[in-house]
Simulated scan of single mutants.
Amino acid sequence: MSFFIAGAGGVGREALDAAIAAGAAVDAFLDDTLAGGKVRGLPVLRPTEAGPGAAYLIGIAAPAARARLAELLDQLGLTAATLVHPRAVIAPETRIADGCLVLANAHVSSSITVGPHAQVHYNATVGHDAVLDARVTVYPGANISGNVHLCADATVGSNAVVLQGLTVGEGAFVGAGAVVTRDVPAGQVVVGSPARPLPPCDR
């Protein structure tokens, strides 16, 4: 079966690294902007050039772009695949949905649910019984404590910490290095330690 990585930018190239480490052959990147060229020796095609029956993994950080591309590629008859770097740890009783990307040295602990097209980047940790909904992004070095709920399209920045039992709402963004000590409402951007809402004029 053919296998494509959607997105030939930074996350897409990191996804290729994971595929190489896992022994998974990648046929091409899918990227409208870079179509017709080559990246890391692989051809870059438009998403609409990918044939039905192939597998795909979206290597793009932005949740909205992941949602758009997943809908398009599903409609074209492709199937979402999950890619886990062999140096990542996935503990027992953890369920990872189709389309997820887990990079090197990530530690996804026991009894966790990871929704479709979520990403856990390198050196990030996710504690027991956490729930990551669709298209969640956990950036490098972030620490998600146990029983945390990251709602759909939420992003946790590099080296940020979300403390035990909290909820980060749909589409919320936790800035790099922030320490989340209370629930974050949907759509809110929080920064600092302890994390506080970022004023709209600073976004």
Rank of each mutant, 00 (worst) to 15 (best):
A28G: 05
A28F: 13
A28I: 12
A28Y: 04
L30V: 03
L30M: 06
D31V: 09
D31A: 12
D31N: 06
D32W: 09
D32R: 14
D32P: 02
T33R: 15
T33E: 13
A35P: 11
A35S: 15
A35T: 12
K38S: 04
K38D: 04
V39T: 13
V39W: 08
R40A: 15
G41T: 12
P43F: 15
P43I: 12
V44F: 00
V44N: 01
L45N: 08
L45E: 11
L45G: 06
E49R: 02
E49F: 02
A50Y: 03
A50K: 14
G51R: 15
G51H: 06
P52H: 11
G53Q: 07
G53T: 10
A54Y: 08
A55W: 08
A55T: 12
A55P: 02
A55V: 00
Y56P: 10
Y56D: 11
Y56R: 07
Y56E: 09
L57N: 00
L57I: 14
I58E: 07
I58L: 08
G59L: 03
G59M: 03
A62V: 07
A62Y: 05
P63H: 01
A64K: 06
A65H: 13
R66V: 05
A67D: 08
A67R: 14
R68L: 15
R68T: 14
R68A: 14
L69H: 09
L69F: 10
A70N: 11
A70R: 12
E71H: 14
L72D: 10
L73N: 05
D74Y: 10
D74I: 02
L76N: 13
G77C: 02
L78F: 11
L78K: 07
T79V: 14
T79K: 13
A80I: 02
A80Q: 01
A80V: 04
A81D: 09
L83T: 10
L83F: 12
V84C: 04
P86A: 12
R87H: 08
A88M: 02
A88E: 11
V89E: 04
V89Y: 11
V89A: 05
I90H: 00
A91M: 06
A91S: 14
P92T: 00
P92R: 09
T94A: 05
T94W: 01
R95A: 12
R95D: 00
R95C: 01
R95F: 05
A97L: 08
D98G: 13
D98Y: 05
G99Y: 06
C100Q: 12
L101R: 05
V102D: 00
V102F: 01
L103T: 03
L103D: 03
N105D: 11
A106I: 00
A106L: 00
H107Y: 10
V108I: 14
V108S: 07
S109H: 11
S109D: 15
S110H: 06
T113I: 01
T113K: 04
V114I: 15
G115S: 09
G115L: 09
H117T: 09
A118K: 04
Q119V: 13
Q119K: 00
Y122A: 13
Y122M: 03
Y122D: 00
Y122F: 10
N123P: 03
N123Q: 13
T125S: 15
V126I: 15
G127P: 01
